[in-house]
Amino acid sequence: MTRYQKALKAMHNAEDRHPQSFVAVDPDSGRVIAHSRKLSGIKKTISTRKSSKGLIISKKLPDTYHGYFNLSV
């Protein structure tokens, strides 16, 4: 499993633990560094960390989520 695949898995595990929140997760250890309903809350928490570089920040996409955006005229 590549680092990329591990990171994706860690991200989804973190999202499942905090389905309503943004999460910041360490891609290598899978540790959830911060979770917050607002992205600004995440930023506040990780800014106190020595290094917030490389943390994956995400939020669970609902199963009903659809993309498909079109320019309107």
Partner: peptide, 22 residues
Amino acid sequence: LILVKIDNYSNPYPALIDTGAD
């Protein structure tokens, strides 16, 4: 869904590949 980085930021973010989006 793939992980991408934006500008000079080091954090990866998930992004959905959507062929239906203009």
